[in-house]
Design a protein around this nucleic acid. Structure first.
Ligand SMILES: [Zn+2]
Ligand SMILES: [Zn+2]
Ligand SMILES: [Zn+2]
Ligand SMILES: [Zn+2]
Lengths: 166, 166
DNA sequence: GTTTTACTTGTTATATCATAACAAAATTCT
DNA sequence: AGAATTTTGTTATGATATAACAAGTAAAAC
């Protein structure tokens, strides 16, 4: 078990994350009559193993190492599938993809992205969602999707960069 | 006066938008000791003339038509300058750039993006901003920048796509 | 269980978005 | 004018994403 991601905000057994995500994924796909093929499944695992947003070509390289086809459509098809199934999110401001830990509950991904360590936390904020829907509606706008990406400093990095001077 | 943007959500004299944006830009640049050079100024005008987000290479083509250099760095430098000065925003989910009508007030751009007509409305929502800052802080996160991009159907397009069937 | 159908993958090429690196020119400061 | 700073020109390349069509595979129909 390699553990290059041990510097997470909250320490946890990341293997559990992955296993849980994968079983959810399988259940969801069966339920929806979708096929979680080898390459799709492996793509999802690799995204989870990184535990921070992974670029399409980074993912493609990992897949290629394992014998999958190495042309871009391979990875973009897998990503499209996983996005469509709600199993991952795209972080628009990073052009990168992140596993969703709550794929079973339909929702939008709200992210806190650390400028320093590039860790990304997904957070749920029903209040904000409701407020946005209402605000949009007041302008005659029917809200369908939200991209909420907040950048700054996570707790750990905030400590590091400020600690010495203060 | 060409008026390919007459199908705005709210009709208005768009020339006023542009003039107002340009004078604000000039004032701001002088105030900050920045130089609004020819290419930067013209880039800003062209972004405003489109009145919806413009891709970097679309803008580059327009600049090239007018005799400016046609290599990518030309446009990306202008965009970097304008972004840095707060005169435009980048819409991350579209990889496109939009003039800011309130460049004088430091703020983050929140956008309503229509899936149909691709018009983009910037909206200000201090409540949401405050809630996000507080929510982030509660997780130990120091918020620096926000990407808030909401997609859906604007009032006009909502009418079009639903009207006939209902 | 073979045919038909729908879906998935392979393959090649290309489109789109963005930056690195260094040289030349213009502007500002002294 | 001369030096320092900033801006622009130029060439090359990196990074992200899709189009188009052929081949293969799995599911459904018969
Ligand atoms: Zn999620
Ligand atoms: Zn951090
Ligand atoms: Zn703005
Ligand atoms: Zn619309």
């Amino acid at each position: 078990m390699k553990h290059e991601d041990a510097h997470q905000h909250v320490h946890h057994n990341h293997n559990d994350c992955i296993e849980s995500a994968l079983s959810t994924a399988e259940a969801l796909c069966i339920q929806q009559g979708q096929r979680l093929t080898k390459v799709r499944r492996r793509a999802l695992e690799l995204i989870w193993e990184s535990h921070r947003p992974l670029g399409a070509y980074q993912l493609l390289a990992k897949l290629a190492e394992e014998g999958f086809n190495s042309a871009p459509p391979t990875v973009y098809r897998a990503l499209d599938f996983l996005l469509g199934a709600g199993l991952i999110h795209k972080v628009e401001s990073m052009n990168a993809y992140l596993g969703c830990a709550h794929a079973d509950k339909a929702h939008k991904g709200y992210f806190l992205i650390c400028d320093e360590c590039h860790n990304v936390m997904e957070f749920d904020y029903q209040d904000i969602h409701a407020a946005l829907v209402e605000k949009a509606a007041r302008q005659g706008f029917e809200l369908r999707a939200e991209t909420i990406e907040l950048t700054g400093l996570c707790e750990k990095c905030k400590g590091k960069s400020v600690g010495a001077s203060a």
